[in-house]
Lab assay of single mutants.
Amino acid sequence: VPQRAWTVEQLRSEQLPKKDIIKFLQEHGSDSFLAEHKLLGNIKNVAKTANKDHLVTAYNHLFETKRFK
């Protein structure tokens, strides 16, 4: 089981690129989880459509539901 890579403050910070969060989610989330949160596909394309709040919610949801690969 992966550990949380970032704190809530870090997740919301401008310093953390959306692409980093997407990469983490794609590496650790199950396909059904990723599909549900519309996070499947090319990281660049996902970054265009997903806002930061959406990614933070998905990140927290992944750990709450433990839907890891």
Rank of each mutant, 00 (worst) to 15 (best):
V1A: 12
V1D: 12
V1G: 10
V1E: 15
V1H: 13
P2K: 03
P2W: 03
P2T: 04
P2E: 04
P2D: 04
P2A: 05
P2F: 04
Q3M: 11
Q3Y: 06
Q3S: 11
Q3W: 04
Q3H: 14
R4N: 09
R4V: 05
R4W: 09
R4K: 09
A5I: 15
A5Y: 13
A5Q: 15
A5H: 15
A5S: 10
A5M: 14
A5W: 12
A5T: 12
A5R: 11
W6K: 00
W6M: 02
W6A: 03
W6Q: 03
T7D: 12
T7C: 08
T7F: 03
T7Q: 05
T7R: 02
V8E: 15
V8Q: 14
V8S: 14
E9N: 04
E9Y: 03
E9A: 05
E9D: 09
E9G: 03
Q10S: 04
Q10W: 03
Q10I: 04
L11C: 03
L11S: 02
L11T: 02
L11W: 02
L11F: 02
L11M: 09
R12E: 13
R12V: 12
S13N: 07
S13M: 03
S13K: 04
S13Y: 04
S13P: 02
S13R: 03
S13L: 02
E14W: 07
E14Y: 09
E14V: 11
Q15V: 07
Q15K: 14
Q15D: 11
Q15Y: 13
Q15A: 14
Q15C: 11
Q15P: 05
L16F: 10
L16H: 05
L16T: 10
L16K: 04
P17L: 12
P17E: 10
P17Y: 09
P17R: 11
P17A: 10
K18G: 09
K18P: 08
K18W: 03
K18R: 09
K19E: 15
K19R: 12
K19D: 15
K19L: 13
K19Q: 15
K19G: 12
D20Y: 09
D20W: 05
D20K: 14
D20P: 05
I21D: 00
I21K: 00
I21V: 06
I22G: 00
I22W: 03
I22N: 00
K23V: 09
K23I: 13
K23N: 09
K23L: 09
F24V: 04
F24G: 00
F24N: 01
F24C: 04
L25N: 00
L25G: 00
Q26V: 06
Q26T: 05
Q26W: 09
Q26F: 06
E27W: 04
E27S: 08
E27D: 12
E27H: 08
E27K: 09
E27Q: 11
H28D: 01
H28E: 05
H28N: 13
G29P: 00
G29I: 01
G29L: 02
G29Q: 00
G29C: 05
G29E: 00
G29N: 01
S30L: 06
S30Q: 10
S30H: 10
S30Y: 02
S30C: 08
S30D: 11
S30K: 05
S30I: 05
D31P: 12
S32M: 09
S32N: 08
S32I: 08
S32V: 08
S32T: 12
S32Q: 10
F33N: 00
F33L: 02
L34I: 07
L34E: 00
A35E: 11
A35R: 09
A35Q: 10
A35G: 09
A35N: 09
A35V: 09
A35Y: 14
E36D: 11
E36Q: 12
E36Y: 10
E36C: 08
H37D: 00
H37S: 04
H37C: 09
H37R: 09
H37L: 07
K38M: 13
L39N: 00
L39W: 01
L39C: 02
L39D: 01
L39R: 01
L40Q: 11
L40S: 10
L40K: 09
L40H: 09
L40E: 09
L40R: 09
L40A: 11
L40D: 11
L40I: 12
G41A: 05
G41D: 05
N42Q: 12
N42V: 10
N42C: 14
N42M: 11
N42D: 14
I43W: 12
I43C: 08
I43Q: 06
I43M: 08
I43Y: 10
K44D: 15
K44G: 14
K44P: 10
K44E: 15
K44L: 15
K44R: 14
N45F: 15
N45W: 15
N45K: 13
N45R: 14
V46L: 13
V46E: 03
V46A: 05
V46N: 04
V46T: 06
V46S: 04
A47P: 02
A47N: 11
A47S: 14
A47L: 13
K48H: 13
K48A: 15
K48F: 10
K48L: 15
K48S: 12
K48C: 10
T49E: 12
T49A: 09
T49L: 14
T49I: 14
T49D: 11
T49G: 10
T49N: 12
T49K: 11
A50D: 03
A50V: 15
A50P: 03
A50T: 13
A50F: 10
A50W: 07
N51I: 08
N51Q: 09
N51W: 06
N51C: 08
N51T: 11
N51F: 08
K52D: 03
K52H: 04
K52A: 05
K52P: 03
K52W: 07
D53M: 07
D53G: 07
D53F: 07
D53H: 08
D53T: 08
D53C: 07
D53V: 06
H54D: 15
H54E: 11
H54C: 10
H54S: 11
L55S: 01
L55H: 01
L55C: 05
L55K: 01
L55T: 03
V56I: 15
V56Y: 05
V56H: 03
V56T: 07
V56W: 04
V56P: 00
V56Q: 04
T57E: 14
T57Q: 12
T57K: 09
T57I: 14
T57M: 13
T57G: 10
A58K: 02
A58F: 05
A58H: 02
A58P: 01
A58D: 01
A58I: 13
Y59P: 00
Y59W: 03
Y59Q: 00
Y59T: 02
N60Q: 12
N60R: 07
N60S: 08
N60E: 15
L62A: 01
L62G: 01
L62C: 02
L62Y: 02
L62T: 00
L62K: 00
L62W: 02
F63Q: 02
F63S: 01
F63Y: 09
F63P: 00
E64S: 10
E64I: 07
E64D: 13
E64G: 04
E64T: 09
E64F: 08
T65S: 13
T65A: 12
T65W: 11
K66L: 09
K66A: 10
K66I: 04
K66Q: 10
K66T: 06
K66D: 06
R67D: 12
R67Q: 13
R67K: 09
R67L: 09
F68E: 02
F68D: 02
F68T: 02
F68P: 03
F68A: 02
K69I: 06
K69G: 07
